[in-house]
Design a binder for these strands. Structure first.
Length: 271
DNA sequence: AAAGTTGGCAACCGCGAGTCA
DNA sequence: GTGACTCGCGGTTGCCAACTT
């Protein structure tokens, strides 16, 4: 197979005059800059035309993917917060592998990123449990054990936050105003988070979507079971305290230990 | 320290849907 | 109606850094 990150080029057979070499593989800084500058002055759309006009030896498809998944200014990077993870689990349990739909509920996150999260983190749990990640058993286990555990964590963190920080009222009013007045996705965080040592555990955009934004034509009902506004508001104010340690609990190293003995026992009974 | 293994993620592919001449 | 073209989505691949042996 010739995919992957090795820079290489292929012949564009569609080219009428002569043979144009099309680049594949990882993007260079120069290519990124070309794409960013072109879109900044001309906007998105007509990707094949854009690729040629920008002087990129890439397919339109490749340009679109690079822009949407990496270069777009409002892309958020870094670890998924517990709230985002909870959203993903909830949404996936309703929608299945409809990554782009799920991504619409997590502003700044791409379908590719969410898909990768699911494959690397969630499916890993399934492997540990020796079940198929798409099996009803595993999906039930997520609903019964994993999601409640995440909610518990969110609640615990929010109560800790409300003890240590009493300035949440302004945040609440801001959030509620946005929730009630504007159903469309609005990004307020223009700064990419790649360099942030402490990703915002409850960014406004995530909060908004958590609280009932329902996209047109989407089967998801917009209300995430029991994931209420109050919990999230309290979470939001914990940002200033930079709870890196608090949120590390859910990272990779929890692995097998994520499922406690009781839950494993129950799970085995289910299986 | 070196070799082997694993996990994360960027990028590619195929396919279906939409649009337009 | 239909064929060409574009776009967007979901699935898959493979590189490479981190980790383990």
């Amino acid at each position: 197979m010739s995919r992957g990150k090795i820079p290489k080029s292929v012949t564009n057979n569609n080219s009428q005059e002569g043979e144009t070499e099309l680049r594949r593989g990882p993007w260079t800084l120069e290519e990124d800059n070309l794409l960013i500058q072109y879109i900044a002055s001309n906007g998105e759309g007509r990707w094949n035309f854009l690729a040629k006009s920008a002087g990129l030896k890439r397919t339109g498809k490749s340009c679109r993917l690079r822009w949407l998944n990496y270069l777009k200014p409002d892309i958020r990077r870094g670890n998924f917060t517990p709230q985002e993870q909870l959203l993903i689990l909830e949404l996936h349990s309703n929608m299945g592998n409809r990554w782009s739909k799920i991504a619409q509920h997590l502003p700044g996150r791409t379908d590719n990123e969410i898909k990768n999260y699911w494959r690397t983190r969630v499916q890993k749990q399934a492997r540990h449990l020796k079940v198929d990640s798409s099996s009803k058993t595993f999906l039930d286990a997520i609903r019964q054990f994993w999601i409640p555990r995440l909610k518990e964590s969110v609640e615990q963190n929010s109560s800790l936050a409300s003890i240590s920080n009493s300035s949440c009222s302004s945040s609440v009013s801001t959030m509620e105003t946005r929730k009630t007045n504007d159903p469309s996705p609005v990004l307020t965080n223009d700064v990419p988070l790649h360099d942030s040592p402490c990703p915002n555990p409850m960014s406004p955009e995530v909060l908004r979507f958590s609280c009932g934004n329902s996209l047109e034509g989407d089967s998801y009902d917009g209300s995430i079971h029991g994931f209420c506004m109050q919990e999230l508001d309290a979470q939001n104010v914990s940002v200033s305290g930079c709870h890196v340690v608090d949120f590390d609990w859910f990272r990779e190293d929890l692995g097998e230990s994520f499922w406690c003995n009781d839950e494993l026992w129950q799970f085995k009974n289910m299986a």
